[in-house]
């Protein structure tokens, strides 16, 4: 009886260690291998957030989106390259930050280009500094040259 308890406890401990190890060693999938939940134009995405931001946040936050639109700005700081698609009238904008190793593709992008980007949408916040909506993306990839 005692032996059984020891064996079962030992097995349980192994399972717990296994699950913990698995959870802690998990990594986000490369965006190239992730299917997108929505395909949308930058203009329509901004419209949806401006019309009803809570509804749009519910729909798009934490989802994978493929967005096509006109680049209005490429922002660089140190090793970071962010791409922006802004609505000049309202000041609201979509900003894409990228996953690692995308820099090589990004460095040729300039304002005025029309591009296709896939990434994880973090929803929008209303910026009091800019008095505009900021729709942010993380872990993005550029799809232009990969179709």
């Amino acid at each position: 009886m005692k032996k059984k308890i020891i064996i079962i406890s030992g097995l349980l401990l192994l399972v717990i260690i296994g699950i913990t190890y698995y959870l802690f060693s998990m990594k986000f999938d490369d965006m190239n291998d992730v299917k997108s939940d929505y395909d949308i134009s930058a203009v329509n995405l901004m419209k949806e957030f401006q019309t009803n931001d809570s509804l749009a946040n519910k729909r798009y936050a934490d989802k994978i989106l493929t967005v096509n639109g006109l680049v209005t700005d490429v922002e660089t700081a140190d090793s970071i390259i962010n791409i922006k698609m802004a609505d000049e009238q309202s000041g609201s904008y979509i900003i894409f930050s990228f996953q690692k190793n995308e820099e090589e593709l990004l460095k040729d992008i300039i304002a005025g280009d029309t591009i296709l980007v896939k990434g994880s949408c973090s929803g929008a916040i209303y910026s009091d500094i800019l008095s505009a909506y900021s729709i942010a993306f993380k872990r993005c990839i550029l799809l232009n040259n990969k179709k």
Partner: peptide
């Protein structure tokens, strides 16, 4: 001043 979207903090680990 600065403002950060909490959801846009990117971790390597999904959990």
């Amino acid at each position: 001043a600065f403002e950060a979207s909490v959801k846009n903090f990117s971790f390597s680990n999904p959990m």
